[in-house]
Design a protein around this nucleic acid. Structure first.
Length: 503
DNA sequence: CTGGGGAAGGGGCCC
DNA sequence: AGGGCCCCTTCCCCA
């Protein structure tokens, strides 16, 4: 018996030893696999970066090929007499400053600017004029990157240097003069002062950097998707500062007259490093140097986008100018868009369990909620078409009421004096323009902490996070389906109404 | 190809 | 003026 006990004890000890050994082996295998996995991940990330760089190079090459095959592009110049600047920045690779409504401009091709590594500190933009009197129809953009000549994108003008991206008005090109814009250190905003026209021009000068990568890389984001720390690829953006660009023409050509003709037809737009005029830019750099990074995270947060502020064009009778402003602080973590907001979601599941219970957090004017409050319906199966139609009409009527309260004609009550510099769309306040212009600039300052999605508006991020939280506040009263968005519910209601989405 | 849902873009209104 | 919310529209994906 005793032997049996000893035997069992020995077996137990052996089993324990074997188990420990097995665990150790498993741990070792896991560690090895993990190391291999990380190595593979690192390699994949490197490959992604390399491919991204190749893609950028290819894009640049394509753009250059276009140059060779077509006319030189023009930088769109904003001029009071010529209307508001229009243009479109796509992908953060274009700079376009254009006088809308000026037919004498040869074409409206925005210039594609590839910032390369983003370390450019010296840019020269040559503006080519259609005629002697008017501003040049096109702008050649020359760039010399003094700090990093090796990475010069060589956007030299002339037949080979200009990068035409789009042609809005590909009219034949008459002989033209040249104007140049020299950007000493790059700038998100450039104020063009045309002395020949004796008026102040404001051009949101967006020099977009492609950098060595884009923010879509998770590893480039800070923890939890926060903006990267100083010193990342965003940093070069801040080297761009606001400058005044003078149309030298006959008078102020001394600033940079190397690129112009000697006759009066030429006009030089020269950027100047004036500390008094570049409060934004200098402050930006200063703050960056101090490590006040968060303040400017917005400016550099999005792919290919330089600045977020200062593009607003306030229109008055005398001048068209860009109103610069201090950048917003865009930090997704500071938007408090987390689980704490889930309480604000409309949860009709609660309504289903207790239709009479009202949620104080629920917006009282929610059409869907109004629907449920006013017309508690049976949740039984079997859609009632007439009933659904009533519900749907209530939704629509609530919308109509909401609009009626707003005066019907949107914007009529408020003067839309803030114009988007890209599309001339008018807005009633500065903030709206800034948000809207993210459409053109691609700025998406709000990033989801749980995925790589980025949004231009906080509300979009908040809405998106329902994907992660599983919140589906909008419930169909007919079939218990729930939706994350009210629009989805509204669309779904049409199913019960028998309406076909595609007729 | 169609129906339907998920999700984002964008704009307007209200507080 | 700024922020938030609501709404419409659109794209994408899947069955």
């Amino acid at each position: 018996m005793a032997n049996c006990m000893v035997f069992h004890t020995q077996i137990a000890s052996v089993m324990e030893v074997l188990a420990n050994a097995a665990v150790a082996d498993i741990c070792k295998l896991v560690d090895d696999d993990y190391a291999v996995f990380r190595l593979e991940m690192t390699q994949s990330q490197k490959e992604n970066r390399a491919l991204r760089r190749k893609l950028q190079l290819l894009e640049l090459k394509v753009a250059r090929d276009r140059v060779l095959a077509s006319r030189p592009s023009s930088v769109k110049i904003l001029d009071r007499n010529r209307g508001m600047a229009r243009g479109h920045l796509t992908g953060g690779h274009r700079i376009s400053v254009k006088p809308a409504g000026h037919n004498t401009w040869r074409d409206d091709q925005p210039i594609t600017v590839d910032e390369g590594s983003g370390t450019a500190t010296h840019h020269v933009i040559v503006i080519e004029s259609v005629d002697a009197e008017d501003a040049g129809p096109g702008i050649k953009l020359e760039r010399s990157e003094g700090e990093d000549p090796g990475q010069s994108t060589d956007i030299q003008t002339g037949a080979a240097g200009v990068l035409p991206v789009a042609t809005e008005d590909p009219t034949p090109t008459p002989p033209r003069t040249r104007r140049s814009i020299t950007e000493v250190s790059g700038t998100p905003n450039a104020v063009l002062k045309s002395e020949t026209d004796t008026e102040t021009l404001t051009v949101a000068h967006r020099l977009l950097h492609t950098g060595s990568g884009h923010r879509s890389d998770p590893e480039r984001l800070g923890p939890l998707g926060c903006p990267p720390a100083p010193g990342t690829e965003y940093l070069p953006v801040f080297h761009q500062s606001q400058k005044t660009v003078n149309s030298c023409g006959n008078t102020d050509g001394d600033a940079l007259d190397s690129g112009g003709d000697d006759d009066d037809l030429s006009c030089f737009y020269t950027t100047e490093m004036d500390s008094g005029n570049i409060s934004l830019g200098l402050e930006t750099q200063t703050d960056l140097s101090r490590g006040d990074w968060n303040q400017y995270s917005s400016s550099v947060y999005s792919e290919g986008c330089l600045d977020k502020k200062g593009e607003v064009i306030a229109v008055d009778d005398v001048t068209v100018k860009v109103e610069g402003d201090t950048p917003l602080t865009w930090n997704a973590d500071e938007t408090h868009l987390g689980e704490g907001h889930s309480q604000d979601f409309l949860d009709y599941r609660e309504s289903e369990t207790n239709p009479n219970e009202t949620n104080p957090n629920v917006s009282s004017h929610s059409p869907v909620r109004t629907l449920r409050d006013r017309a508690p319906v049976s949740t039984s199966k079997g859609p009632s078409d007439s009933h659904c139609r009533v519900l749907f009409d209530q939704v629509l009527n609530s919308n109509d009421r909401a609009r009626a309260q707003g005066g019907g004609n949107t914007g009529s009550s408020k003067e839309k004096r803030f114009l988007c510099m890209f599309c001339n769309k008018g807005f009633s306040c500065l903030q709206k323009v800034e948000i809207h212009q993210r459409v053109h600039t691609g700025v998406k300052p709000f990033s989801c902490t749980q995925c790589d999605m980025r949004f231009a508006e906080a509300g979009s991020l908040k809405r998106h996070q329902r994907v992660h939280t599983g919140e589906k506040p909008y419930s169909c009263p007919q079939c218990h389906m729930r939706f994350t968005q009210a629009g989805s519910l509204k669309r779904h209601l049409k199913v019960h109404m028998g309406e076909r989405l595609f007729v």
